[in-house]
């Protein structure tokens, strides 16, 4: 009898909790503002404790990463040494390439992005769970002027965008590798605006629409953000380099694989461009 009552009570509790979860899911899906503010307040309440523990356990995390990734680190070291040798030899060519990119951007009427106000942020957690591998958290938020959709770059180029409404001192960045990530791009020297999408971990970006079959594109061409048609990204941010070319005969379009110019894995610091496309409209 007592067991039956207990069982009925726990069933009622479960139903109540599931209904509460379903309500929260619905409200969050509809971007219910008070819920977002409550979330933010809770995270802010916990953040001092979390920050202190982060500082305390950072050496443990670093030690673990060194221990579990020792072989990878050795391989990476070797590969970096080889790259350094090559880069020393190509230094002059590389500086010329940067100037060439700037000149090409000027030629097609695209400004260089360095004049846009920006905020430098530190990547504080790569990710908390196992299903958010295409996002990172940074230590700047709404208090620093960050807003949803702002582009995030490194010296190499575009690495992602601010995702969702940032909290006061934190923001989430969706990385360029996310298959859901889309950005309007231009192959420097052409007029076709194409759409590039993330290709997944360690994979190049894919350009599958927008590039006519007769547009002259070659492997090695630079790809930058187009900044056209109310794009959330300013024009001229380097996105990557064309690494593969293919043709879709049915749609008479070219398909490109674009190797990102900025490495989105192992980020430590990033720059958020405080760019508001609506404010840029005349």
């Amino acid at each position: 009898m007592a067991a039956g009552t207990r069982s009925a009570r726990s069933r009622v509790t479960l139903i109540f909790l599931l209904l509460t979860s379903a309500t929260l899911l619905t409200l969050d899906a509809r971007d219910f503002e008070p819920l977002g503010r409550t979330e933010e307040a809770l995270v802010d309440f916990l953040s001092p404790l979390r920050d202190r523990l982060d500082d305390l356990f950072d050496p443990v995390g670093d030690g673990w990463a060194g221990f579990t990734g020792y072989d990878d680190l050795e391989d990476e070291n070797q590969s970096l040494r080889e790259q350094l040798q090559q880069l020393r030899g190509q230094q002059i060519l590389e500086s010329d390439a940067a100037a060439r990119l700037e000149a090409l951007l000027a030629q097609v009427g695209l400004p260089y992005v360095q004049d846009i106000p920006n905020v430098v942020a530190e990547v504080i957690t790569a990710n908390v769970g196992n299903f958010d591998r295409y996002s990172v958290q940074i230590n700047r938020g709404s208090a620093d002027g960050l807003r949803h959709g702002m582009p995030v770059v490194t010296r190499g180029g575009l690495v992602g965008r601010i995702d969702g409404d940032p909290q006061q001192g934190y923001a989430r960045v969706t990385l360029i590798t996310d298959p859901e990530f889309e950005v309007g791009v231009l192959v420097v020297g052409t007029d076709d605006v194409a759409l590039a999408a993330g290709g997944g971990d360690g994979e190049p970006l894919r350009v599958q629409t927008g590039l006519e079959i007769d547009t002259a594109v070659e492997v090695g061409d630079q790809v930058v953000t187009s900044g056209l048609d109310r794009s959330r990204y300013p024009p001229g941010i380097p996105v990557g380099t064309v690494s593969e070319l293919d043709v879709d005969d049915a749609r008479l379009q070219q398909l490109l694989a674009v190797e990102p110019s900025a490495n989105p894995s192992g980020l430590s610091f990033v720059t958020v461009l405080l760019y508001d496309p609506l404010a840029e409209q005349p």
Binding site: S21, L24, L25, G129, F131
Partner: peptide, 13 residues
């Protein structure tokens, strides 16, 4: 859920 990019309430459910 507060720290995940997924919908609030998914993990709770």
């Amino acid at each position: 859920d507060l720290y995940l990019p997924t919908l609030l309430g998914l993990s709770a459910f």
